[in-house]
């Protein structure tokens, strides 16, 4: 690339500055067009499977793309257990998010504002689940539940057992989002509150918590998605009859592909898209997704 623009030759005090040549303008145009084409192709690549899923759902009998015969038949054929699985997934995701938030909030305050020894180590400890693949966590909990069974603790295959797995799954995401936000809050705001006579709890409740609202929403949103998408942990913590939606779709597709499967997938796509658009409208997706 060094041929494109050489440093102007230095001739004593009066260096001759060469104006940009016309060929460099052409080069710029080619560069920009090439860049645009690549980006457009990548965006198409990202969208392709989503479009395919939705359109495939309108096949009447075969799974094909583009669809062979248009019909809404597949949507009518979605069996009831699919919706039960959807409901299970939504419940687990929502509850896991709320519980993880309740656990992460005090921890965040202590880890950012607290004065204590070994803070760095504690921080690493609380974030460590992020470094363990979900499938390993699933296996580990599965073995724990088996080991607990003889003691009369029946977590294996239970809703509570599944919920615990998902809380562990989403906890580090929520913690990270909260940590970033609390660290960004001006400590003077909290000091001002103390100076006006408010104690620690009141300051946290009236000043810190309201200022964390956007981060809480972002974290909750992300956690919901992570939980809703999970197959690895649920694989070990549910039984084939009572699995979460992604797992039910996976099991069914392992048997055979059918338009019904795509109809259910299309419903999930629309559900997620609506969620994404609502978040984008209300908070701006970019502010929610990018970390502080």
């Amino acid at each position: 690339m060094t041929t494109v623009m050489q440093a102007p030759p230095a001739t004593g005090d009066t260096a001759v500055v060469v104006p940009p040549s016309r060929s460099s303008a052409r080069l710029d145009r080619i560069w920009r067009i090439g860049f645009g084409v690549i980006v457009a192709a990548l965006l198409l690549f990202l969208l392709a499977p989503l479009v395919v899923v939705i359109l495939t759902a309108f096949n009447d009998r075969l799974v094909a793309f583009p669809p062979q015969g248009w019909s809404l038949e597949s949507f009518r054929n979605v069996p009831g257990y699919m919706f039960e699985a959807l409901w299970l997934s939504v419940r687990v995701a929502a509850l896991a998010t709320v519980i993880a938030m309740l656990l992460a909030f005090p921890a965040t305050i202590a880890l950012v504002r607290g004065e204590m020894r070994g803070k760095a180590a504690l921080l690493a400890f609380f974030q460590s689940p992020l470094q363990v693949p979900a499938i390993v966590q699933g296996l580990a909990l599965y073995q724990l539940y088996i080991a607990l069974n003889p003691w009369g603790v029946a977590l294996r295959g239970s809703f509570t057992g599944l919920l615990i797995g998902h809380v562990i799954l989403v906890f580090p995401f929520i913690l990270n989002a909260m940590l970033g936000r609390v660290a960004a809050i001006d400590t003077n705001l909290e000091l001002a509150s103390y100076g006006l006579g408010a104690g620690f709890l009141r300051t946290t409740w009236l000043v810190t918590l309201p200022l964390m609202r956007p981060a809480l929403i972002a974290a909750g949103f992300l956690a919901f998605l992570v939980s809703f998408d999970d197959t690895s942990i649920s694989l070990f913590l549910t039984q084939v009859g009572g699995a979460t939606l992604p797992l039910t779709l996976l099991y069914t597709s392992e048997q055979a592909l059918s338009p019904m499967l795509y109809a259910m997938s299309a419903i999930v796509v629309v559900f997620s898209l609506v969620l994404a658009l609502v978040v984008d409208r209300v908070f701006g997706l970019r502010t929610v997704m990018s970390r502080d």
Partner: peptide
């Protein structure tokens, strides 16, 4: 601690609570 001193402070960057109105800021204490 500051909350037991009854000392008023004006901070360098004002430290006004951004989520509260002027009234609520002044009423806080």
């Amino acid at each position: 601690p500051p909350q037991q001193r009854n000392i008023g402070t004006v901070f360098q960057n004002y430290a006004l609570f951004p989520h509260m109105s002027v009234f609520d800021n002044v009423a806080y204490g």
